[in-house]
């Protein structure tokens, strides 16, 4: 295994957050109560989504700069890993919403932003499927990737400002914000974020290496 330390660190941190997240004492807040523990799992998925989609966009730019097929592979694998974490984020968020607000889905800026980014990358994969020529596919999908990424960022940035209320922390009279997390919760939350980011990038690299190995063997 190459560069072992950060991979093992990621695994250990995630394992720690999984166990400690259920064991530590959390403040008893109205509406969310014990379900606040989900913050250690749900929020990390979104960080991963954003980081992996950013990697995808950066590699799309690098592809257009030199038309090296390597960057196209990186771009598409990062996007698909990102979408995977996005789906996990939607599922964990939906379960959380069911227990604290009684519904699976609400009209909420974060949720809307998330579903919009899923749709954008869904369109990205459909576009890739519909072009047969490899070089052309890489070029066209890189262009769409960059354009769609910028639009997604705008969407994520402006939505909360345009919306009247949100069920997410710190907005619309909700009890707490990420910035005033309880001190013990921080001890779990920050390691969880770092650990999941490491694991997310690792999964992306494994997917990428499998893809490259297959290409070389002509599979």
């Amino acid at each position: 295994m190459k560069n072992m330390w950060w991979k093992i660190a990621g695994l250990v941190l995630v394992l720690y957050s999984l166990i400690a997240g259920l064991l530590i004492r959390v403040p008893d807040l109205p509406v969310i109560h014990e379900s606040i523990r989900n913050i250690f799992y749900h929020v990390c998925m979104w960080f991963n989504l954003l980081i992996l989609l950013s990697i995808s966009c950066i590699n799309a730019v690098r592809y257009l700069a030199g038309f090296n097929e390597k960057f196209d592979l990186r771009s598409v694998e990062a996007a698909s890993t990102g979408v995977f974490f996005g789906l996990l984020g939607l599922v964990t968020g939906s379960i959380w919403a069911r227990f604290s607000w009684g519904v699976f889905w609400t009209n909420d800026p974060q949720l809307n932003g998330a579903s919009a980014s899923m749709l954008i990358y869904g369109a990205y994969f459909v576009l890739r499927k519909s072009v047969n020529d490899e070089e052309k596919r890489a070029r066209i999908s890189a262009v769409y990737n960059i354009f769609a990424y910028v639009m997604m960022i705008i969407f994520l940035l402006i939505l909360p400002k345009l919306a009247q209320g949100s069920v997410h922390p710190g907005k619309g009279g909700n009890p707490m914000a990420l910035t005033d997390l309880d001190a013990t919760m921080r001890l779990v939350f920050y390691p969880a974020v770092v650990g999941w980011i490491f694991v997310g990038i690792w999964i992306y690299q494994i997917k990428l290496r499998i893809r490259i190995a297959k290409e070389i063997n002509g599979l």
């Binding site: 166990i19 690792w202 499998i210």
Partner: peptide
């Protein structure tokens, strides 16, 4: 907690073995 930890350890072992195989 044990069930979750065991599932996660399983995933970790899968990832590590994949990584070694790829190397």
């Amino acid at each position: 907690i044990t069930v979750i930890a065991v599932i996660f350890l399983g995933i970790s072992i899968l990832l590590i073995s994949l990584d070694c195989k790829l190397t």
